[in-house]
């Protein structure tokens, strides 16, 4: 398998290099998407299938489609921006030094890791955490604050997009490309099935809120871009949309406060109740992630006065 690993590493370097060095924005975006797919394969090789799924769905799929849509809305004069290539020979020495420095720091960090890691500690805490799978227990209980901050960052991104401009409704495609809306509608039950499966699987196997939300988000973006979801643009549903977007974060905070009230420490959930809290948080977080990924594709604030 060494050959496969080497090929993957080479492919990652090659796509990253092409993304940065080749002229033309379209080529850069295409290479970035290929890079995301290669990274997903590398995560599979590192035996982290949940990270691989999130990387494939978010890194390659949703980000790539977002960049492609943005590219489509640029005026033609700005699409052929050339990368600054002239200064490359001059910059090659500082770049090399920087890369070597970062590699050295990472290497030192790896050497400094406690042997054999924290697996034992997590395993002893697992019965008290309310989840049966170590990754889920880590993400939602033991290191819940990390997940909380991640969701906050995503909510900030939505707020930033909404503050830029009004939402742009999707173009009417069904006249020119009748196949696409039909495919999006036919596939959506399958997206829903996979979403429920990952959510259910999260307590005892790789899966959980982030991969599930990313998957349903991808299906939702497909529906949104083909104009099959009208309610998100309507003023009447704006308040509901805002509450749903914040649901994951709010439930997380409520849990933290409840832990504070019940046991005296933030997030100090009693083991008896932790399982129920984790399920509630996981469902709410997954739904919020789905909707947040979809609202990126509104390209602005929905629900304007008509």
């Amino acid at each position: 398998m060494l050959v496969v690993d080497l090929l993957l590493a080479l492919a990652a370097l090659a796509t990253a290099g092409q993304c940065l060095l080749l002229p033309g924005l379209f080529r850069a975006v295409a290479n970035l998407m290929a890079f995301g797919l290669v990274m997903a394969l590398i995560w599979v090789r590192l035996e982290a299938p949940d990270v691989a799924l999130a990387e494939a769905a978010i890194g390659a799929g949703i980000t790539g489609a977002l960049l492609l849509t943005a590219l489509g809305q640029l005026p033609a004069s700005q699409r052929d921006i050339q990368p600054a290539r002239d200064g490359l020979p001059r910059r090659i020495i500082p770049i090399t030094i920087l890369v070597l420095l970062i590699t050295g720091m990472l290497w030192a960090a790896i050497l400094g890791l406690p042997k054999p890691g924290l697996v034992e500690e997590v395993a002893t805490l697992l019965p008290e955490s309310g989840a049966e799978h170590a990754v889920t227990a880590l993400l939602l209980n033991l290191r819940g604050i990390d997940t909380l901050l991640e969701i906050t960052v995503m909510l900030c991104a939505v707020a930033t997009i909404w503050s830029l401009q009004q939402a742009i409704p999707p173009p009417t495609l069904s006249h020119y490309y009748p196949g696409l809306p039909t495919l999006a509608r036919w596939l959506h039950p399958l997206f829903l099935l996979m979403f429920s499966y990952f959510l259910w699987q999260g307590t005892h196997a790789p899966g959980g809120a982030f991969p599930a939300g990313a998957l349903l988000g991808a299906g939702g973006v497909l529906l949104l871009l083909t104009g099959s979801i009208a309610w998100m643009y309507q003023r009447a549903y704006n308040l509901l949309l805002r509450w749903l977007l914040a649901a994951g974060l709010l439930l997380f905070l409520i849990t933290a406060l409840a832990g504070l009230l019940m046991t005296g420490t933030l997030y100090g959930l009693p083991p008896r109740l932790a399982g129920y809290f984790i399920i509630a948080i996981e469902v709410a977080t997954a739904l919020s992630i789905t909707l947040m990924l979809m609202t990126f594709y509104l390209f602005g604030r929905p629900g304007a006065q008509q």
């Binding site: 020119y176 490309y177 196949g179 696409l180 495919l183 036919w186 596939l187 399958l190």
Partner: peptide, 17 residues
């Protein structure tokens, strides 16, 4: 089957575009 669906739709989209 899923790849068949997606690739045929994608090919139609690229070609008509």
């Amino acid at each position: 089957g899923l790849i068949l669906l997606a690739s045929s739709t994608g090919a139609t989209l690229i070609a008509s575009s």
